[in-house]
Each structure stands twice: as structure tokens, then as C-alpha cells.
Amino acid sequence: MSEGNSKSKKPSRKHKPPGLKILHEDRDIIVVDKSEGLLTISNDKVKDKTAHFFLNNYVQKGNPKSRDRVFIVHRLDRDTSGVLVFAKNQNAKAYLQEEWSQFNKKYYAIVLGKPPEMEGEVTSYLMENSAYRMYSTKDSSKGKFAKTGYKVVKSNAHYSLLEIELFTGRKNQIRVHMSDIGCPIAGDKVYGKDPKVRGRLALHAASLTILHPYSKKEMTFETGLPNEFKAVMS
């Protein structure tokens, strides 16, 4: 990780956010490694056991009346692990969201089988049906353009480990596109039928490169390959 405008802080044990490893924190941003199974933000069923809730509690040090808070910049699916960045003020949030499409995002995924090419790109227009499931269409007037790049890192008799570059950030984009090429992500019960990999969806946000909202310096945050992925591909 490159340097930002201040050094990282270690969370106090008392308010350490569960399911999150803090990779970097300064006055403008907080970057974490989110575990799989944890929502980014609340939904109709889960209100407080989310990354957003836990980090708000952390920056407020347990005082809900504190003016300190974190702001949503982007999301990771509940079952996707990896790098997640939050803003600590409105200006940082606005900048990061405005520039988001220009930042580099890389994922690791284990898919069923082997893609048709060792390296390639998948493009389509994505839209959502009444059951909230995303799917690809060729009709540009109905869907939103989505582009995913992939490279095969390793393969065995049943699975392939892919490094994936996300050029656009549509809902469930990687999962849909891998299913489109006949290689659904392992553990995906919505877009594939393969059994779970050690109890989880095999998708991990491995690397994120941004320009810091205050200093404008390039910063890269990385996490390693999850142990579950290593076990499947060994």
C-alpha cells in the first residue's frame, strides 16, 4: 500500500469492528478487508450487523451522539470478501464516487471448469428481473453496459482460479458474466449450481487502487488469496 496523508491507526480492542480488518485509516477514508457473510449496509432483515454499522460504532467509540461517522462509497455482496473503502466525510465520499469508474479493481474467483480462453473480456448489458436477479441482454436500451476482464491463473480437474478486472461496477456483474461463459463461480447458488467452496462463495475483492480524496496520491490496498481458495486449487 502506498502512503496516504497520515499513518494507519489500530482500532482499540473495545470497539474493534467484528468481521473487518482495518487496512488503512486517516482523516478522510477508512479501508477494510471484509469477511464473507457480512453485509456492507443494512437491508430489510438486518439492521445492525453490517460493515457500515460496525465502522460507525468504531469511529464514534460507542457514542451514538458523536458527529463522527462513515459514508458508503461502494458495496461488496454479503458473500464476497475483500477490500472495501468508506469515506469519513461528505467531500471524500463525493470525490470517490465521482471518480470510481477510473479506479482499478481486481478480484480473485474460483469458477467451475475452464474458460474458453486463457485471457479475455466479457461484455453485455445487465438488467434486473422481478425476482431481483441480474441477467445479460443485448438490448442497450434496457440494460446497463458491463465489462469484465479475466485471466486464468491456475486450473485443476474441476476448477479454475481467475484474476478478474472490473471495468464497470454493476450489481452481481462478475457472477453473471462468469455464468454467461459457462464457468459459474463456485458456491454461487443464484447464477450456478456448483457446491459451495468450504461454505462460501468463491469471490474475493483482492486489490483496489484509488486516488486519495485529499492528497490525490495513488494508493493501492491489497489482500492475499483466501485460505479456502488455496485449499481448493492445491
Rank of each mutant, 00 (worst) to 15 (best):
Y58F: 15
Y58I: 07
Y58D: 00
V59R: 07
K61P: 00
K61D: 13
G62K: 10
G62A: 10
P64W: 09
K65R: 14
S66W: 10
R67F: 13
R67I: 11
D68S: 13
D68Q: 15
R69E: 11
V70E: 01
I72Q: 00
I72D: 02
H74W: 02
H74S: 12
H74E: 09
R75L: 07
D79G: 04
D79A: 10
D79Y: 04
D79N: 14
V83D: 00
V83L: 12
V83I: 12
V83M: 10
L84Q: 03
V85P: 05
V85K: 01
A87P: 00
Q90A: 12
N91M: 12
A92E: 03
K93L: 15
Q97A: 02
E98I: 03
W100C: 01
S101A: 12
Q102N: 15
Q102P: 01
F103T: 03
N104D: 14
N104G: 05
N104Q: 12
N104H: 12
K105T: 02
Y107W: 05
Y108P: 02
Y108A: 00
A109Y: 02
A109N: 06
A109M: 09
I110K: 03
L112I: 13
G113S: 07
G113F: 04
G113V: 04
K114A: 06
P116G: 09
E117L: 11
E117M: 10
M118L: 11
M118W: 11
E121H: 13
V122Q: 07
V122E: 07
T123S: 15
T123G: 06
T123L: 13
L126P: 01
M127W: 13
E128F: 09
N129Y: 09
S130H: 12
S130C: 10
M134E: 04
S136K: 15
T137V: 15
T137L: 13
K138G: 15
S141A: 14
K142Y: 04
K142A: 10
K142N: 07
K142C: 05
G143Q: 04
K144I: 06
F145H: 12
F145V: 06
K147C: 14
K147Y: 10
T148D: 05
G149T: 03
G149P: 04
G149D: 05
Y150W: 14
V152K: 04
V153T: 05
V153A: 08
K154A: 10
N156E: 00
A157D: 14
H158V: 12
Y159A: 06
Y159Q: 08
S160F: 01
L161G: 00
L161W: 02
E163L: 12
E163C: 06
I164K: 03
E165A: 08
L166Q: 00
L166M: 09
N172K: 04
V176E: 03
S179M: 11
D180H: 11
D180Y: 10
D180K: 14
G182P: 02
G182L: 09
G182H: 06
C183D: 02
P184W: 05
P184G: 07
I185K: 01
G187R: 01
G187N: 01
G187P: 00
D188M: 06
D188K: 08
D188Y: 02
D188E: 03
K189I: 11
K189C: 06
V190C: 00
